[in-house]
Amino acid sequence: MSLKKIDPLSISLRLYFYKLKGYSVLLYGLILAQIIALLFSLNGISYMSSNNGELSVSVNTYSASLVIVFSLVWIFYTAIQLTTKRYKRIEIPLVTNNITGHLSDIGFLMTACFFGGLTSSLAGVLLRVIIYFTFDRSQVIVDQFFLPFIDLLLGAAVSALYMILISAIGYLIGVLTKVSMAFVIVIPTVILGLLRVYADFVQTLVAFFTRETSFPLFVLKVLITSMLLFGFSFLLSNRREAVQ
């Protein structure tokens, strides 16, 4: 047992930078997911057409929403991964406990969310530029093509917030499966059961975030829920003695 008093925040910060280096390879997954989503998005997300015999008119709708969805899937997977033994092994060479480990994990997730939110929003700009240079411009509709800069910033912030929320859910699921392997079966069962039996409840839960039209309220909802989920993860995981 060390006689020196340990400041958890400074340890967490050191551990955060250490993990930022150690876990940086995970970013390849995000970049790859975004590039794949962008390629799919080039095919259009929806299509409608009309015909009067002499003339066929169709509209292909494009959006980078798929890039955001892929980024959400990535952060969910990453958050679960961070709680696994393979990723926790990185903490072994450092003086650490459960709290500093979790705080540094959350720090890494927040950084990944910020990066993912920004890049997924900017992918929409890349999509527009690709469409401008690859398709017949006389058939590209100008409305919503030049995304206002403020919308771009809003999109980045909202994407990052959704990623924070999903990472908190993923992290909690990861911690739960660490508590007991039974949760590996229980969680999907509960989710499927809720979707089937209490579909309205699930819809209300999703709408609580997705139907919120006030940005400050949305921020508040996401941050409070994420803090609760991360806090619950803290409580669930057992306290560990300093590894070293």
């Binding site: 008119v57 169709s58 494009y62 955001i68 999109g155 919120e212």
Partner: peptide, 27 residues
Amino acid sequence: PGHQILNFKQLNADFTINQFSNRNYAI
């Protein structure tokens, strides 16, 4: 004229933007 085909490209804002701008362009 022969059968004419016009294929327009409509760019939509992402759902993260539409949520706050009251725009929801459905096809």
